[in-house]
């Protein structure tokens, strides 16, 4: 991948103001970050490259055990527990209606924050942290149609590669989680 490649840790360091390094002391805490350069974490789901704004991601965790929740949509793997916090864990491949790939050792759970609640998104592999200037963003996925369009916020151009930036509110819409038909099935 071309463009600014950076180590994930470095990027996380830079995005948050909580971590202080030696450099900070030297430069008197005055490290400027270009405000309009949004940072994105990119990851692979069923062979395609997706991205989420870095501030939406709270933590990247190894895949952990989940508990199946009956009467929910199939993309919900279940609920998981990370240090005492209960969160729904979503199989992103199923959510995006892609063919699920074999989940290997590289699989990770992106813990995202939405409406003050944590959610886990299982991806095949976390790749990079990239910066995309606003001018390289295509707000409307113009030519792109189909069932997945609603989950896409924008298309980002990272060099010559395209990154599909996901739209969390659509992805985590609460009404999709509960299987509506289950109530009638349960009674028959």
């Amino acid at each position: 991948m071309s463009g600014e490649r950076e180590d994930l840790w470095q990027a996380l360091l830079r995005s948050g103001e909580v971590v202080v390094t030696d450099e900070d002391y030297e430069h008197g805490y005055k490290r400027e970050v270009r405000q309009d350069l949004q940072q994105y974490v990119t990851f692979r789901v069923s062979g395609e490259v997706y991205g989420l704004a870095i501030h939406e991601i709270e933590e990247i965790s190894k895949v952990f055990q989940t508990t199946h929740v009956p009467r929910t949509a199939d993309f919900l793997l279940g609920i998981g527990n990370v240090r005492g916090r209960i969160m729904p864990v979503i199989d992103l491949a199923r959510r995006l209606r892609l063919r699920p790939a074999e989940r290997g050792r590289a699989a990770r759970v992106l813990i995202v924050h939405f409406n003050d609640e944590p959610y886990g998104l299982v991806v095949d592999e976390v790749m990079d942290v990239i910066r995309i200037p606003p001018e390289a963003m295509e707000d409307k996925p113009g030519g792109l149609t189909g069932t997945r369009a609603e989950y896409i916020r924008a298309l980002g151009r990272n060099g010559k590669d395209l990154v599909i930036i996901l739209h969390l509110p659509a992805l985590l819409d609460a009404k999709d989680f509960v299987k509506v038909t289950v109530y009638e099935e349960g009674r028959s």
Binding site: Q65, T66, T67, V69, P70, R71, T72, L76, I79, G80, N81, G84, I86, M87, P88, N115, E117, P118, Y119, L172, A174, F177, V178, V182, Y183, G186
Partner: peptide, 27 residues
């Protein structure tokens, strides 16, 4: 008892979640 997030809170028949040893989450 721990509350389920808003996404799964409205699953009929499920009221919450809890931990039962060994980090096992149970409904």
């Amino acid at each position: 008892i721990k509350p389920l997030g808003s996404a799964v809170r409205n699953v009929p028949g499920i009221a919450g979640a809890t931990e039962l040893g060994a980090n096992r989450t149970v409904l």
